[in-house]
Amino acid sequence: MPLALLGYALAVMLTVLAATPVSAQTDGLELAVKATYLYKLAPFVSWPASAFASPTAPLVICVQGAGPFGQILDRAVSGQAVGSHPVTIKRLARVDADSGCHIAYLAGGPGQSPAQALQAMEGLPVLTVTDEARGPAKGMVHLLLARGKVRFSVDAQQAEAGGVVISSKLLALAVAVKR
């Protein structure tokens, strides 16, 4: 019996061969908090009137590139609304002026890096959200980990350029604000 076990274990190990190096894992709770931020930020942001087709038009959260959230983002926003706008999710490989986003989480992917996505969104009334875990490029809101908690920094300059107004409450909660 021991020999059989040994044989089994070795067989298993031999079938598991060379690794393909790739991206890090983000842990479950951290991911859940980031997904929650995406819709919880919305009440503290004002878009120009032209951003919504009607008072009940959906508020679109776009996930650009290799979004890490999977189904949990859809679960997080199901049934949620910001004012009278129901929240919906759109997944895109690339974002640009015609993507129809109000909030864009720029995960980056083979088609467009976060930095490229930011460039494409420049001057548009879209709240760009970047993530320290996905790259160094910083959007209007940049998610990061500070002392074991998920926090964010705000780039008020970019927001102003896009016509997006960020409330002072949000600025107060940010770990850093770039004006």
């Binding site: 842990d27 479950g28 709770l29 908090v33 929650t36 999977g70 997080a76 908690k149 998920v150 909660l173």
Partner: peptide, 29 residues
Amino acid sequence: LAADQAAERAVEQLRTYSLEDLTNLRVTT
């Protein structure tokens, strides 16, 4: 699979959190 399950339960609980609560929640890196 494990992270997904934990994350699913978490987003349910996090619905009741205010933005301020979120900034205080330890996810401990």
